[in-house]
């Protein structure tokens, strides 16, 4: 056996290892969670471990509401920010904003949650009423967390638009803004959509920061306003796993929540890949 063969085998083992881990997680999740996963579980209105009722519909809805609102906020701020960075900002300002945004990626989510707890929640309580722990607080915290991803991926997408499109547009007598709006952004839109989808994936899976600000009522209900407390899927697992009895239906229900989360995130990633592929296919 040649020496090069050994090296390539070792590399192959390392490569397989990460794939193997993913498969092990999937198998483990499904084995533990599949028994509790059924129609009553997904559509059930009541989650009450004491009464042996495990319906996640209010929690599922809470998750969707919190994530959707957060993404709308993050998109509304992040996309214009990306456009500014990629097309209009002077070099030094772009560097400054980008490095700040990158710091935001590195901030541990528990720290952002802490910020939400100490700044956002009292602010909401004092100005808008309610307990402060609310959907709105979840929106803000999650928007802060997905913002840097949306900004940097959208900016990449905009900057990847060939200069030749910009030149063609300017040479036709378009202004800078017309060029950005009509030539650059349409060409970058698939990349920006992918950025948003990945931001959603990040928001769905986020646990700690959300847990700290959304209130997590013991018996979740269908929210009626943005100041309502909600429960999200991830925080349910994080809060209840410590006291769920080993081998009980409660524990299996929590695993089933994990399965649901897993499928949501996989679906989002598939959507993102599809969107990116389509861009390449378009040339």
């Amino acid at each position: 056996m040649k020496r090069g063969d050994i090296a390539s085998k070792i590399l192959f083992l390392c490569a397989s290892f990460s794939t193997l881990i993913v498969f092990l997680i999937i198998i483990f999740l499904l084995r533990e969670g599949i028994s509790a996963l059924n129609w009553n579980f997904l559509m059930g209105m009541v989650w009450s471990p004491h009464k042996n009722l495990y319906g996640i519909f209010p929690t599922l809805l809470g998750t969707l509401v919190v994530v959707a609102g957060a993404i709308i906020i993050a998109t509304a701020i992040g996309v214009p920010c990306a456009v500014f960075l990629a097309e209009f900002s002077p070099f030094w300002l772009r560097n400054m904003i980008k490095s700040t945004v990158e710091v935001l990626v590195g901030v541990p989510s528990v720290v952002i949650g802490f910020f939400g707890l100490i700044v956002i929640i009292p602010f909401i309580r004092n100005n808008l009423g309610g307990r402060g722990e609310s959907i709105l607080a979840g929106w803000i915290v999650l928007a802060i967390m997905s913002l840097p991803h949306i900004i940097s991926l959208s900016e990449d997408a905009i900057r990847a638009v060939p200069t030749s499109y910009r030149q063609a547009s300017l040479a036709l007598g378009a202004t800078k803004w017309q060029t950005v709006r009509r030539a650059v952004l349409p060409s970058a839109s698939s990349g920006m959509r992918a950025a948003i989808v990945l931001g959603v994936g990040r928001a769905v899976g986020e646990t700690m920061a959300v847990l700290m600000v959304v209130g997590n009522p013991e018996t979740p209900w269908i929210p009626t306003g943005v100041l309502d407390r909600v429960r999200v899927l991830t925080s349910t697992i994080a809060i209840e796993f410590s006291y769920a009895e080993w081998g009980s239906p409660h524990q299996y229900a929590l695993f089933a929540i994990g399965v649901v989360l897993f499928f949501i995130v996989v679906a989002l990633n598939l959507v993102a890949t599809f969107v990116i592929r389509r861009r390449n296919w378009n040339g």
């Binding site: 060939p162 030749s164 499109y165 030149q167 063609a168 547009s169 040479a171 036709l172 007598g173 378009a174 017309q178 009509r182 030539a183 349409p186 060409s187 378009n282 040339g283």
Partner: peptide, 22 residues
Amino acid sequence: FQKPNPFPQSVYDNVAYGVRIH
């Protein structure tokens, strides 16, 4: 330009681009 640089839009929209802008 040196390299053909149509926008990744329809043939019609490419030709209409400048007309619409102005």
